[in-house]
């Protein structure tokens, strides 16, 4: 089962890599005249590293050559052995005969070559004007399975809205509003208290006498005040 999934993945890789290759390097140039004029080989700063990488990727393929072709040719077989030491003990041994391996490798290779040829053929004559509106699956793929949209809807947008709420409502009207409110309260009460300082000696005297009466009563007998209030209410 896993073999088929693996082959399917490999086939898709073969398809999209050669689609990319064909669209980029084969067929007619689809850009403008102006752009065509500027086409040139990349500078050696790019080509030399690319050559080195290309050589190494071929070499890399042979380092891990399976025992089916060259006995003990697999240099990397035991490279990570210490890492898997504990897990190999838990895993049941799984062995294939060389014949089975040849069949599997053969099938995979033939399929891949077929897919490559198909990809090259399909896209060789591709031109921008035959581009059609993507159908359902194509659209799903074009939008990367909508994973980014999902993230945006579930995490990014709510976070932005909440952050905006914090910034504009809680911070401005809530916390800072409270601080400024204290300031305004002080300013307001001073404005009101200022009115008492009217400069009219008569009202000063009135307040003074009222205060004296109040203090006198408290001093003399606070029960008198209580009784007084009881009488009123």
């Amino acid at each position: 089962m896993f073999y088929y999934v693996g082959v399917a993945g490999a086939l898709m890789t073969a398809f999209y890599m050669f689609r990319l290759y064909t669209l980029t390097f084969l067929g007619n140039f689809r850009g403008t005249q102006e752009q065509a004029h500027h086409l040139h080989e990349s500078p050696s700063a790019m080509t030399i590293p690319l050559i080195v990488l290309a050589v190494l990727s071929v070499v890399g393929g042979f380092i891990g050559i399976p025992a089916a072709f060259i006995e003990n040719g697999h240099w990397l077989e035991h490279f990570l052995a210490p890492v898997f030491a504990s897990s190999t003990q838990l895993k049941a041994a799984h062995h294939l005969s060389h014949q089975q391996e040849y069949i599997m490798m053969g099938t995979a290779t033939i399929l891949i070559v077929a897919v490559i040829l198909y990809a090259v053929n399909t896209y060789k004559k591709y031109s921008t004007d035959q581009e059609a509106e993507a159908t359902s699956i194509g659209k799903l793929l074009e939008n990367k399975w909508y994973v980014d949209e999902l993230y945006n809807a579930v995490i990014v947008n709510p976070l932005h809205v909440f952050a905006g709420f914090c910034k504009n409502i809680i911070e401005k009207s809530g916390v800072d509003g409270m601080v400024n409110g204290v300031g305004r309260l002080v300013a307001y009460s001073s404005r009101q208290l200022r009115l008492v300082q009217s400069g009219q000696v008569a009202s000063y005297l009135l307040i003074m006498i009222m205060a004296i009466v109040v203090f006198f009563l408290i001093w003399f007998n606070d029960l008198t005040i209580i009784r007084f209030f009881n009488k009123i209410f």
């Binding site: 976070l159 932005h160 909440f162 952050a163 905006g164 914090c166 910034k167 809680i170 911070e171």
Partner: peptide, 10 residues
């Protein structure tokens, strides 16, 4: 958290 959220919208 509060300050970080506000920073996002600044």
């Amino acid at each position: 958290l509060y300050a970080s959220l506000i920073a996002i919208r600044q």
